Simulated scan of single mutants.
Amino acid sequence: MLDDSDAPPPLVSAGIGCTPMAGVLEHLAATGSGREVWVLHADHSPDDHALRADIRRLVDELPDARARFWYERDTDREPGARRGLMDVDGLGLPADADVYLSGSLPFMRAVRAQLLKAGVPARRVRHEVFGPDLWLADTEG
């Protein structure tokens, strides 16, 4: 999933989509990466956020990493968490970032549109679907 460049890799996920991002963070921490890393995650609540403690620990291990979380409820249980849906507007993502998206298709479509509006070139937005099989809805009748 992650390339070998020095470009900052914003890791943007929702729900269980944080699973591959945790693997990327493990790799970056194990290799002593000095890359600027952004971890952006949206979920229903801190309790629903899988691997939250592991992700916090890995972000703390990396010298130039930061995390921002969005929750629909119980934001007071996670310091610095924002309430509501993810909004990347105004975050100041690095211009040379290669963004990695992981989550449901609706989430990735919404965030990709925000990224494009913010000036991130489409070729710098990579994705991995990590959610329900939406194509099944077309076959059930």
Rank of each mutant, 00 (worst) to 15 (best):
V24K: 02
I16C: 11
F130N: 04
D133P: 05
L91T: 09
K117S: 12
A137P: 06
G90V: 02
H127E: 15
D74P: 01
V129Q: 10
D47W: 11
A118N: 12
W70L: 07
W38G: 04
R126I: 06
A118W: 10
G34L: 11
G84E: 07
L62M: 04
M108W: 00
R56H: 12
V111Q: 02
G80K: 02
G17K: 04
D4F: 09
E36W: 01
R66A: 14
R52W: 10
R123I: 05
Y71Q: 14
H27Q: 12
R124Y: 07
P106L: 03
L2H: 09
L2T: 09
G90H: 00
D87N: 11
R68C: 13
P106A: 03
Y71H: 14
P20Q: 05
Y71M: 13
V125F: 07
G15K: 08
L93V: 05
A42S: 13
R73D: 11
K117E: 14
L85E: 14
A30R: 07
P46C: 12
V88N: 08
E128S: 10
A110Y: 01
I55E: 15
D3Q: 08
W38M: 08
M86K: 00
M21Y: 02
G17Q: 06
V120D: 00
D54M: 14
E26L: 12
V99Y: 00
A97G: 08
A22V: 15
E128M: 11
R52M: 14
R57F: 02
V125A: 04
F69A: 05
A50G: 10
R77K: 11
T31D: 11
S45K: 08
R82L: 15
V120T: 06
L40C: 13
D64P: 03
V37C: 03
M108R: 03
D64V: 07
L91E: 10
G15Q: 07
A65Y: 04
V12R: 03
V39D: 10
A81R: 04
R52E: 11
S33V: 02
A95S: 12
L62C: 12
A67T: 09
A110M: 08
V37Q: 05
P94E: 12
D76I: 00
F130H: 04
P8K: 01
R112G: 02
D48S: 14
K117L: 08
D133M: 11
T19D: 05
F130T: 04
L58G: 05
S13Q: 04
A53P: 10
A67R: 04
L91I: 11
T139V: 04
V129C: 13
P9W: 01
H27V: 09
P9I: 06
G103F: 02
H44C: 10
G34V: 08
T19A: 15
H49D: 15
S104L: 03
T139W: 10
L2V: 13
P121T: 01
M86I: 01
R77G: 10
G103M: 03
A14I: 07
K117N: 07
E61R: 09
L58V: 03
V120K: 02
A30D: 15
D3T: 07
H27E: 06
L51W: 07
V120M: 05
R77Q: 10
E36I: 10
L40K: 01
L62Y: 02
D4V: 06
L116F: 00
T75Q: 08
D96A: 04
W70N: 03
W38F: 10
E61W: 01
A137H: 12
A113K: 02
R112W: 00
P20A: 07
E72P: 06
